[in-house]
Design a protein around this nucleic acid. Sequence first.
RNA 1: GGCGACGUGGCCAAGUGGUAAGGCAAGGGUCUGCAAAACCCUGAUCACGGGUUCAAAUCCCGUCGUCGCCUCCA
Length: 467
Amino acid sequence: MSLKIYNTLTRKKEDFETLEPGRVRMYVCGPTVYANAHVGHAMSALVFDILRRYLEYRGYEVRHVMNFTDVDDKIIARANQSGEDPFQLAERYIQQYERNLADLNVLPATVNPRATREIEHIQKIIQELIAKGYAYPTADGDVYFRVRKDEDYGKLSRRSFDDVRGGTRVEVDEAKEDPLDFALWKSAKPGEPSWDSPWGKGRPGWHIECSAMSLHHLGEQIDIHGGGNDLIFPHHENEIAQSESLTGKPFVRYWVHNGMLQLGGEKMSKSLGNLVTIDDFLKDHEANVLRLMVLNSGYRSPLTFNDEVVEQTERALERLRSGLRPCLPGAGGAAEAAVQTLQQQAERTREDFIAAMDDDFNTAGALAALFELVRAINQTRDSGATDDQLRPAQDLLLELSGVLGLQLEQQDKGSAQADPFINLLVSVRSELRRQKLWAISDQIRDRLAELGVVIEDSREGSTWRWE
RNA sequence: GGCGACGUGGCCAAGUGGUAAGGCAAGGGUCUGCAAAACCCUGAUCACGGGUUCAAAUCCCGUCGUCGCCUCCA
């Protein structure tokens, strides 16, 4: 079995072969930091975190680069509005984004380059592109990429020159040779952040920074380049144009794009203003819920986000966790045959899990395998299995859910110091139940429930857990 | 207007040629003082219309609908 990845460039699933055996060079487009990150950003981060974790599970060493765009029009506009220094503003949102990712249990990238720290590299590339005739400066101090010179421009988004031009709604800058040309370097207006350059004071265009950082941190050719599918055109198309015109080599082997998170049937985006920030979401829900939502559907498809789905996902998470519960009170051991059946299911689960993930990261299929394992564990527990008998299957559940980045083990919601007292209460209540004092037993159960402690009774005794 | 994606049971959602995974909800049952949990059982022919094929949710054409991109966007 080999891993297959859907490549946006070819619109097909392809066998995954890296440039260098055992190593993956992956670049993922990060956010422009001018506002709070929303759950749509989280989706993208989670998708590529899951990709990365699985690649590592499969034995690859992954060099993962995610950039921050920390200088651009919107940052400047925002800073001007509030009177804050644009660099300070960007720094603030970068720190917040990094905190968000940590809260979401997203592994830190190997490198987080920032546009403002790569100016030299960017300028060098622009100069080379000019020297090769792929770019030209204007009298105003801007530099544009000469799109017409790149014969296969449009191959990623499958657009012809005419398609692009036909739909162009941008005001045509008279200084451009062609309306299709895009900026590599933007001259600075008074008061804007700027750097000296051969073309005068200015700052880099959006697309060139990714080409430059990818080249700088990963080399001329990389294995995976990722981002939201809203970046396919023009951003990634332009990156290809810049990078391949510069090096003459294929830039990226596999273009991977995630679908958009949908809120009320629309893409969640800063410009539409219909966003739920990551901070808002995490106030009411644990990070695993969002991750499980992402896992439950294909990463390339739109993801439905609404209260109903969030609630369904919370229950599904509970169900996964039910597989980790200890044996029943008074468990006398399951029959050998039952334990063997569980063992067989565990083996099948691992196979199914890998087969699903190998098929273009079919996380929904992988999850199905996990749910089947949960059912098998619960069946075996019901048949009287001891903790020792359940443990191997439970360990597998933890291992595989961990590959997906899920944290099933409950961090103690209550304080561990309370445990002895709860144990005492529960055992006293058990005595009350033996005396058939139902009213007071139920009262204890209800009151503890209000405090987040769930008591479950059975013939053999009672168990409790934090909700 | 151009380019692209999608439309699977009440909801979310896998599956892309051989008679439909999984989760949530619902109904029935086991267990149980009650409750909860767990377990068992029950349900879809895959937007619509044509076509290709021994065989299609899965390929082709058309219609309708939804969404994305074409402007900043994960």
